[in-house]
């Protein structure tokens, strides 16, 4: 079982075989050549993005598409920013709210599933996990109807508010899983028993014993939920509009025009991806922790 804090452990030994021998040196050469080749392939789309985004929109000659820009231009970035700034802020509100709400629910659920079980809690947990794997298409039609119904009663229940509610709810399973796996290993049952013998009730144990050591699971869960809310498109497409949707919606609109303005589109991709990329670069090990818990085992 993978816990939330597991990241890829470092190697335990330094190299294998005789380090200086000619054979191993050749193997190492091939290994690095492959590593660099694959890194170049993975980074190729990023190169396209950066290079194209800096070209003036008049530079439309296909044969120079892979070349560096003849003259640097901020035109693409400026026009993409003008289009994407409002939805970008809506996405910030969305992703931050979802991260906070999901983590609170996740801590409560994970604590119970790991340390304060009730009869049948297993079955409930497995039923939760299934909710993590369902194709959201299977709920989308009635969900859309339901959301429109609520909106007709509560006029403020639109766009981003809808998405906050929906992402928080459909994030319950994964967040419960991350916290449960974390608590199962990070909080020794003996400590809880001791607190209980001292007469502490469940909330007291949760608040004073468990929550203070929960920071790593909070970070992993919040990053995970931030990223998935930020990157979501399916819910946005079904539940929001051009006027009140998140940045993925706006980016798709920007890219879908009849006469594509590639510098602006590519700059738009970078702008829309920057927040999650920054999170990934700054907090990569926690990001991987979330990925790992997604694999259940």
């Amino acid at each position: 079982m993978t816990t939330a804090t597991d990241v890829i452990p470092p190697v335990t030994t330094t190299g294998h075989g005789a380090p200086g021998s000619r054979g191993s040196r050749r193997v190492r050469g091939i290994r690095y050549a492959l590593l660099i080749l694959f890194a170049a392939l993975v980074l190729m789309p990023l190169y396209v993005l950066v290079v194209t985004s800096l070209k003036p929109s008049s530079d439309v000659d296909p044969s120079s598409a892979w070349g560096l820009p003849h003259a640097l231009s901020a035109e693409g970035w400026r026009s993409a920013w003008d289009t994407l700034a409002p939805p970008l802020w809506r996405s910030v509100v969305l992703a931050v709210s979802v991260a906070v709400l999901s983590a609170i629910l996740g801590a409560m659920n994970g604590f119970v599933f790991a340390k304060w079980r009730f009869p049948g809690s297993h079955i409930v947990f497995t039923a939760f996990l299934f909710g993590m794997f369902i194709p959201y298409q299977a709920v989308m039609i009635p969900l859309q109807g339901m959301m429109i119904g609520v909106e007709s009663q509560l006029p403020w229940f639109t766009g981003i508010v809808k998405l906050i509610v929906v992402h928080t709810i459909f994030g319950i399973p994964i967040c419960a899983l991350i916290f449960r796996n974390y608590y199962a290993t990070a909080v020794p049952t003996e400590i809880l028993e001791a607190a209980r013998v001292d007469g502490a009730g469940m909330l007291r144990v949760f608040w004073s014993v468990v929550l203070p050591v929960s920071a790593p699971a909070f970070v992993v869960t919040m990053i995970w939920q931030f990223t998935s809310a930020w990157n979501d498109f399916l819910f946005a497409l079904f539940l929001t509009t051009r006027q009140n949707g998140p940045v993925t919606y706006a980016l798709n609109e920007l890219a879908g025009g009849q006469n594509p303005d590639y510098p602006s589109i590519m700059a738009g991709v970078l702008i829309a991806s920057l927040p999650t990329l920054l999170v990934y670069i700054a907090l990569g090990r926690y990001f991987i922790g979330g990925l790992m818990s997604g694999s259940v085992k």
């Binding site: 993975v42 789309p45 990223t227 930020w230 990157n231 979501d232 498109f233 993925t248 980016l251 798709n252 991709v269 829309a272 991806s273 999650t276 990329l277 999170v279 990934y280 990001f287 990925l291």
Partner: peptide, 8 residues
């Protein structure tokens, strides 16, 4: 690439 949305 895992940190980038499928849309982007």
């Amino acid at each position: 690439p895992m940190a980038v949305s499928f849309i982007a």
